[in-house]
Amino acid sequence: MRKAKIGFMAFAIFLGVGGAFASKIKTRIDCNADTQYYLSGSTYFPAGLYGVQYYCYQVPLICTYYQPNPISQPNVYNPCVIGEYEPIR
């Protein structure tokens, strides 16, 4: 019984810590890991670091965009983060 308890808790620790690293890898795969751009007029500008240089207010707009293929399609930008772009001064 004691061994089973220890095994159960070890599994919980493994899931917690392992899950954190696994989700870190996953977020690297999605668009958030790419350089984020904001649209001003008809030009895209690098947004910088989220939480440090800009924020996305929770409104149903496109906050930032990313380039799915920056080499083969340098002028293509796809929506990534929902919200309203707001620079931090």
């Binding site: 159960f8 808790m9 599994f11 919980a12 620790i13 899931l15 917690g16 810590v17 899950g19 954190a20 690293f21 989700s23 870190k24 670091l49 989220y50 939480g51 440090v52 924020y55 931090i88």
Partner: peptide, 27 residues
């Protein structure tokens, strides 16, 4: 075990992405 998974997951995630966490907390 459920609470351990939750708290370890969230704390380790914060430490892994500490810069982002500082930025978010700062605002």
């Amino acid at each position: 075990a459920l609470l351990i998974i939750l708290f370890l997951y969230t704390s380790v995630s914060k430490f892994i992405d500490f810069r982002q966490f500082i930025g978010a907390m700062g605002n």
